[in-house]
C-alpha cells in the first residue's frame, strides 16, 4: 500500500472508482463520472495516478473495473469488501496509508445507495478540504491547486485549495477516453483485504427498482427567444442566499452556522 519511495513524483493522485450501471440495460460498466475523474487525473502533468476501488470482487465487478484499466493503467488497487459493507472506513484507512496529494471521485455512485455522501464523509474523516462539481484542474504548484468548479449554465468558479484535498467531478469535466480492450485485459487487480464494517442500517432497507414517474411538462412563459433559451439551458439554480466576500474565517463560519440553524439542519 505504501507508494514506492525511490522516486517521488510531483503529484500523487488517487482516483476512487466505482462500478457503474447502464441506465437503460442495467449492465455493469465504468461509472461515467468516475471515468471523467480518471480522465481529469490523466490530464494532469507529472501526476502519478492510482486507481482505488473498495467493494466486492466478482466476475461482473471485474469486468467493470477493467473498463478503467483500459484507459491506460497497468493496475488497480482493490480493497475487498462484502456486499452491503460500508466502505468508508476501508477507504479512509487506505488513503491515510498512501497519503496522496489529491483524491478525485465522481459525485455519486450509479449503484447501491448512491447518496453522494461518501466524498463528504471521507473528507470529514481525513480532515481534508473538499471541492465538489469540478470541471478542470488548472494547475498544481507548491501544494496549492487551482481548480475550476462548474456552476449552472456554463459558469465557472476558480478556486485555490491547499492539498491534500478531495475533489468530485461534474458532468462538465472532460469526456473520458475510450477504454481499450488490450490494456484492460492485461491490467491486474491488486486485491487486498480491508477493514470490514457492516452497514447494519442498510441491511434492513428494502430495495426495489424505481418506477419511472411521468415527466412534468415544463411550461415556459417566455417573451423572447433569449428567455426560452435560458429556460431550456438552465440547470437547477438556488435562489436567495448571500455572497460574503472579504470576511474572516470566523465570520464566515458563523454565517454558515447561522444558516444551518435557520434551516434547522442543526438544532
Amino acid at each position: 500500500m505504501q507508494p514506492e519511495s525511490a522516486m517521488t513524483p510531483a503529484l500523487e493522485v488517487t482516483v476512487l472508482v466505482s462500478i457503474g450501471r447502464h441506465p437503460l440495460t442495467g449492465r455493469v460498466r465504468r461509472a461515467d463520472q468516475d471515468a471523467r475523474g480518471v480522465e481529469l487525473a490523466r490530464s494532469l502533468a507529472d501526476a502519478e495516478v492510482r486507481l482505488l476501488h473498495a467493494g466486492e470482487c466478482n466476475e461482473s465487478s471485474e469486468a467493470a473495473l477493467r473498463g478503467y484499466l483500459g484507459m491506460g493503467f497497468s493496475e488497480l488497487a482493490l480493497i475487498e469488501q462484502p456486499e452491503g459493507a460500508d466502505v468508508l472506513p476501508a477507504l479512509s484507512e487506505a488513503l491515510d496509508a498512501t497519503s496522496p496529494h489529491l483524491v478525485i471521485t465522481g459525485e455519486r455512485a450509479e449503484r447501491g445507495e448512491g447518496s453522494g455522501l461518501l466524498p463528504y464523509l471521507l473528507a470529514e474523516r481525513l480532515g481534508w478540504p473538499l471541492v465538489s462539481g469540478l470541471a478542470a484542474v488548472e494547475s498544481v504548484e507548491d501544494g496549492m491547486a487551482t481548480l475550476l468548479q462548474a456552476l449552472p449554465r456554463g459558469q465557472r468558479r476558480r478556486l485555490k485549495i491547499r492539498l491534500p484535498a478531495i475533489v468530485t467531478v461534474d458532468d462538465a469535466a472532460p469526456t473520458p477516453r475510450q477504454s481499450a480492450y488490450g490494456p484492460a485485459r492485461r491490467g491486474t487487480l491488486e486485491t487486498s483485504a480491508g477493514e470490514v464494517c457492516n452497514d447494519d442500517e442498510w441491511a434492513t432497507w428494502q430495495v426495489q427498482p424505481a418506477r419511472p414517474r411521468p415527466k412534468r411538462l415544463k411550461i415556459v412563459k417566455a417573451a423572447s427567444a433569449r428567455d426560452r433559451f435560458k429556460a431550456a439551458a438552465a440547470k437547477a439554480e438556488g435562489t436567495g442566499g448571500q455572497v460574503l466576500t472579504d470576511v474572516t474565517p470566523t465570520q464566515g463560519a458563523e454565517a454558515i452556522l447561522t444558516l444551518l440553524r435557520d434551516e434547522e439542519v442543526l438544532r
Binding site: 437503460l24 440495460t25 484507459m71 475510450q178 481499450a180
Partner: peptide
C-alpha cells in the same frame, strides 16, 4: 488502434460503448 490504443475517432468510441451496453 481500437483494441490497444483506444483511438477510434469520431463517434466510434460512443458507438462501441453503446454496442457493449445495449
Amino acid at each position: 488502434l481500437t483494441l490497444e490504443e483506444g483511438a477510434t475517432p469520431g463517434k466510434g468510441a460512443e458507438v462501441i460503448d453503446n454496442l457493449i451496453a445495449t
